[in-house]
Design a protein around this nucleic acid. Structure first.
Lengths: 136, 136
DNA sequence: CTCGAATCATTAGAGCTGCAACTATTTCAG
DNA sequence: CTGAAATAGTTGCAGCTCTAATGATTCGAG
């Protein structure tokens, strides 16, 4: 076994794992009739959020948040409301239907995550390493 | 600070880092007039590959490899040749132009990877953890 | 106060991706 | 040998993501 990990291999592993996570989300979301990014948006809506805030939480561009919000709004899961303080911005709010679906979603996500096989200690160590890599 | 890392946070970190890597590849590839996936395909072409083999190395579906190969062929960087043993398959081969561009590409990729800030020891530990997560 | 710069959301456009269906070929059980 | 099943590549489709440009609003230096 080569003990020195190259950055090349590391990048491959990271993107590979990201792909697995994405596939897991897609699968779970699919059981509720949602796409992966719709599900992630719904998950992040812990309360009223501006579209920019949502894009920040989703880790994507604001234009993408607009796109996803359109789909969620079409399905009657969220509503766009004028922002109380800033007339440029809009607030995204869950409807009753959206709130209910979100709860089901959170339950589904808990089942069989790709990272579940790792022990708590391993997860903590991975967390620390990733945090260092991301923030630098 | 909560010391227990949740799977939720971990998933976010992994996909966030994957995004950074993707952005880095996109940036470097852009300086040579390539898109990110074209660059990754080119990088993986260490020798003649079947489209299926390429898709395996790229970590994507075969249909995607077809798509990317079309673009590379349009630019005269690769050629599709009949497979010597299997008439179903095709072999993807770099042209002279493709070989030359690939070398420039490898040099560009080496500059400023998102994982460079990690020490060798950290990279090794990350490698081990990711390997465990991916393979299970 | 005022006007230029920054910020919010949106739109248009190009490109990537996975899934499902299809054809051609190979493999293998009987 | 023969026909069913598996495999290679492709295509169509829906959906995601980025970048760049735009209009509306807010902020801030002077």
């Amino acid at each position: 076994m080569g003990r020195m990990a190259t950055e090349r291999q590391l990048c491959g592993l990271v993107t590979g794992l990201a792909r697995q996570i994405e596939a897991h989300v897609r699968d779970r979301a699919g059981t509720l009739g949602l796409t992966a990014s719709q599900a992630i948006a719904l998950r992040e809506l812990t309360g009223p959020l501006t579209l920019r805030e949502l894009s920040g939480r989703m880790g994507c561009e604001p234009s993408n948040a607009t796109f996803v919000s359109d789909r969620l709004e079409e399905q009657g899961l969220v509503e766009r409301r004028p922002h109380p303080q800033d007339r440029r911005a809009k607030q995204l709010v869950l409807t009753d239907k959206g709130t209910e679906l979100r709860e089901q979603l959170l339950a589904r996500f808990a089942e069989g995550s790709p990272l579940a096989p790792l022990t708590q200690q391993e997860q903590d160590r991975l967390h620390a390493l990733l945090l260092r890599a991301v923030s630098s």
